[in-house]
Simulated assay, not measured.
Amino acid sequence: MKDLKDYSLLKHNTFGIDAKCRRFIEYTSVEEARQAAAMLTDEDRPLLILGGGSNLLLTDDYKGTVLHSGINYLKQIDEERVKCGSGYDWDRFIDYCVTHQLYGAENLSIIPGEVGASAVQNIGAYGVEAKDLIEEIEAVEIATGNIRVFRNEECEYSYRQSKFKKEWRDRYLITSVTYRLSKNYAPKLDYGNIRSALAAKGIENPTATELRKTIIEIRNAKLPDPKELGNAGSFFMNPIVSKAKYDELAAQYANMPHYTIDTDHEKIPAGWMIEQCGWKGKSLGNAGVYEKQALVLVNLGGASGSDIVRLCEAVQKDVKEKFGIEIYPEVNVR
C-alpha cells in the first residue's frame, strides 16, 4: 500500500493540472482497501476517490485525502461473465472481450480510465452504456470496513449517473466490477457516424474486431491525446429536453441533430450547440475549445483548473442565451 504526503496529482489527471493532495493512499487488494478505510480519520476529509483521472478537473491543491485503487486483474468467471479489479484499465477490458468473442462492449472502446470508474460514472458512447454490461459491484464501506456487493439495479443507473455519484459518494471503495457480456454478436451501428465510417472502408457487416477498430479511429480523429493536449474527453453532458422544447428548436434549426430517448424526450448534442455559438477552436487564455470537437475543453499549456472553469462558464452562458438550455459538466470539478 502507498501512503504518501503532499503528493502531486499531475500524473493522475488527464487535464495536466499540477495540483497536490495532502495525503495519497493507493490500495492493491481488498484487504488493503479495508486497511485504508480503517486508517482514515476526520483529518483526512474531504475524501476524493480517484480512478484514472480522465474525468476530473482539479481547481486547486486538494486539501484532503485521495484514495486510488491499484487492484489490477481480469478474471473470466464463466462463458459470459468477466470480473475485473477496479484499477484495471478500461480499454484492456474491452480488448479482452473482443479478442475472446465476448460481445456488447465494442462501442465503448478506447474510453480512457479504469474499471472502477465505469461503475460510478456509467460511462457511455455510441449508444452503449456501462450499465448495459454491469452485473454487480464489490466495494468496501469506508465507515465500517465491511465488504458490500451491489447488484446493477441497486445502483439506480441513468445517463452518466449512479448512486455512487449521489448519496453513496465517498462512502465506498470499489474493489471489483463483474460484467455480463454475450456470446451472440449483435452490433449497434446506428449511433453517430459509425455506419458512414464503415462504409468508407467498404464494410457493411463488420466483425467485432472491425467495429472496435473503427470506433477507435473515430475517437482518435476527434479527441486529442491527453499526453499532447490536456483534456478530459467530453466535458459536457448532452442535455435531454422535453419534446416540446425540441419541437421549438427544430422549427428554428432544421438540421439540428438529435436522438430520441422516449416519446416525451429528445437528446440534443451539446457539442453542436457549442459550435453554433461560435466556440469551436476558440479560447480564453490558456483554456480552449478543441478545434475538432466542440464538446472537448483543452489545456493549451499552463492552464489552471480555474482557467478551465472560466471557459466552461462562458460556454454555458452562451448556450443558455442562444438555445434556452442549461448544459452541465460531465467532468468531476473538485
Results as ranks from 00 to 15, higher is better:
residue 36 A to M: 09
residue 36 A to L: 10
residue 36 A to V: 13
residue 37 A to F: 15
residue 38 A to P: 04
residue 38 A to D: 11
residue 39 M to I: 12
residue 39 M to D: 14
residue 39 M to W: 12
residue 41 T to Q: 02
residue 41 T to C: 07
residue 41 T to P: 06
residue 42 D to S: 15
residue 42 D to I: 13
residue 43 E to C: 07
residue 43 E to M: 13
residue 44 D to E: 02
residue 44 D to T: 10
residue 47 L to K: 09
residue 47 L to H: 06
residue 47 L to Q: 06
residue 47 L to D: 07
residue 48 L to G: 00
residue 48 L to N: 00
residue 49 I to P: 01
residue 50 L to H: 02
residue 50 L to P: 00
residue 52 G to I: 01
residue 52 G to M: 04
residue 52 G to W: 00
residue 53 G to R: 05
residue 55 N to L: 14
residue 55 N to A: 13
residue 55 N to G: 11
residue 56 L to V: 13
residue 58 L to W: 05
residue 58 L to S: 03
residue 61 D to V: 12
residue 62 Y to W: 15
residue 62 Y to R: 10
residue 63 K to D: 13
residue 63 K to L: 11
residue 64 G to E: 03
residue 65 T to F: 02
residue 65 T to I: 07
residue 67 L to N: 02
residue 67 L to Y: 08
residue 70 G to W: 03
residue 70 G to D: 00
residue 71 I to G: 03
residue 72 N to T: 08
residue 72 N to W: 08
residue 74 L to R: 14
residue 74 L to V: 14
residue 74 L to M: 15
residue 76 Q to T: 07
residue 78 D to R: 14
residue 79 E to D: 14
residue 79 E to N: 06
residue 79 E to R: 10
residue 81 R to T: 09
residue 81 R to C: 11
residue 82 V to S: 08
residue 83 K to Y: 01
residue 83 K to G: 00
residue 83 K to P: 00
residue 84 C to S: 04
residue 85 G to C: 10
residue 85 G to L: 11
residue 85 G to W: 12
residue 85 G to A: 04
residue 86 S to Q: 01
residue 86 S to V: 09
residue 87 G to M: 07
residue 88 Y to T: 04
residue 90 W to K: 02
residue 91 D to C: 07
residue 91 D to W: 09
residue 91 D to N: 15
residue 92 R to T: 13
residue 92 R to A: 15
residue 94 I to P: 01
residue 94 I to Q: 05
residue 95 D to G: 13
residue 95 D to W: 12
residue 95 D to K: 15
residue 95 D to R: 14
residue 96 Y to F: 15
residue 96 Y to G: 09
residue 97 C to L: 07
residue 97 C to R: 08
residue 98 V to T: 11
residue 99 T to L: 15
residue 99 T to M: 14
residue 100 H to G: 04
residue 103 Y to T: 04
residue 103 Y to C: 07
residue 104 G to T: 09
residue 104 G to Y: 09
residue 104 G to D: 05
residue 105 A to P: 08
residue 107 N to P: 03
residue 107 N to H: 01
residue 109 S to M: 11
residue 109 S to C: 13
residue 111 I to F: 03
